[in-house]
Simulated assay, not measured.
Amino acid sequence: MQLPVQSQSSLYAEAWEAGATPGDLIEIARTADRAGFAYVACCDHVAVPRRLADGMGLIWYDPVATLAHLAAVTEHVRLLSHVAVVGLRHPLVTAKQYATLDHLGGGRLILGVGAGHVPEEFAALGVDFARRGPLLDETIDALRAALGPEPYPEHHGPRYDFGDLGQLPRPAQRRVPVWVGGSSPAAVRRAATRGDGWLPQGDPRPERPARIARLRRLRE
């Protein structure tokens, strides 16, 4: 489940969430854990521009901090970033954060990633919004290396180039699953060619079978 409380857009938040506390969030995660849910998920926005605030709201908990907090109070449920806009940060920074989360949580991380949709957020952080698609492709490749088992990960690409830089702890999982979010043709292609899973977003349910069929064709 996508957790309530941690993001409160007017598009989906319910009235009770406005007065909810961190304790409520913990209780919901624990209940999901006890009930056998597959995962609990947390979204990612660094900052919301004023022009979008009425719809998006300003409450967006940091996914790494939130999932790490919930990892400490749950036992079995997996911990999903749905989705992390990983192009906003250097992959070594992202890898350090999520590797630590996976290590502390006993190997329960699923790294959900997406391209992002807020130009002002990219501009404020000095990232080219128009190139976010190719940037995400390379970032996923870099994160595959940086979240792998090697303590000295290596990646050489047009934007990111690193090697001989050690990071410990490694994730508890030998291979952290990467799920790609979005339902555009580019996102479905990215999920098929670079992802371990797909997180559809915003597409009507009747259109899902055709997109899943396309994803399977691309994987073949």
Rank of each mutant, 00 (worst) to 15 (best):
L168A: 13
P209H: 01
H156Q: 12
V77W: 03
R132H: 10
F162T: 04
E138A: 02
T193R: 10
D24A: 14
G126Y: 12
H155Q: 06
Q173F: 00
W60H: 14
L109E: 04
D196I: 01
K96F: 03
P149E: 10
S183V: 04
I28W: 08
L52G: 08
R190G: 05
A29P: 02
G197V: 05
H69T: 15
L104W: 08
R170H: 03
A29V: 00
A186Q: 12
P149Y: 11
D54L: 08
T139C: 13
A130R: 13
P22Q: 10
W198A: 00
A191Y: 12
V180Y: 11
G36R: 14
A35L: 15
L101V: 04
R219Y: 06
S81A: 13
E150Q: 15
F37Q: 10
P22C: 02
D62R: 00
P134E: 07
T139F: 06
R205I: 13
T139K: 11
G181I: 05
R174Y: 09
G126K: 08
A32L: 06
W60N: 12
V46T: 10
A18Y: 13
L52I: 05
L67N: 05
R189P: 08
H90M: 02
H156V: 14
R174D: 15
A65M: 07
W179G: 10
G87D: 00
H117D: 15
V113L: 00
L79P: 00
P63K: 13
S9E: 05
E75I: 06
P22L: 12
A15W: 11
S9W: 10
Y39I: 04
G112I: 07
A47G: 09
E207S: 14
T21P: 11
L143V: 04
G55I: 06
L147M: 01
P206G: 05
W16D: 03
G163N: 09
S9I: 00
C42M: 11
G57C: 04
L135P: 03
P119C: 01
E120G: 10
G166D: 07
I28H: 10
G181E: 04
K96R: 14
D137H: 15
Q8M: 04
R208P: 00
A41G: 07
E121L: 02
A41E: 02
D141Q: 14
L92C: 04
P119E: 05
T100V: 08
G36I: 00
W198G: 00
L218R: 02
G181D: 05
P185Q: 01
R211V: 04
E220N: 11
I59V: 15
R208E: 07
E121V: 02
V86H: 11
Q97K: 01
G23L: 06
E120Q: 09
H103W: 09
D44Q: 03
H156Y: 07
L125T: 05
A47T: 12
A53N: 05
A191D: 09
L109W: 14
D164S: 12
A124I: 12
D33A: 12
H82N: 15
R30V: 13
Y61A: 02
F122A: 09
V188T: 14
R190N: 01
L25Q: 02
M56F: 02
A68H: 02
K96Y: 06
R30Y: 05
A124R: 11
H82L: 15
S81D: 13
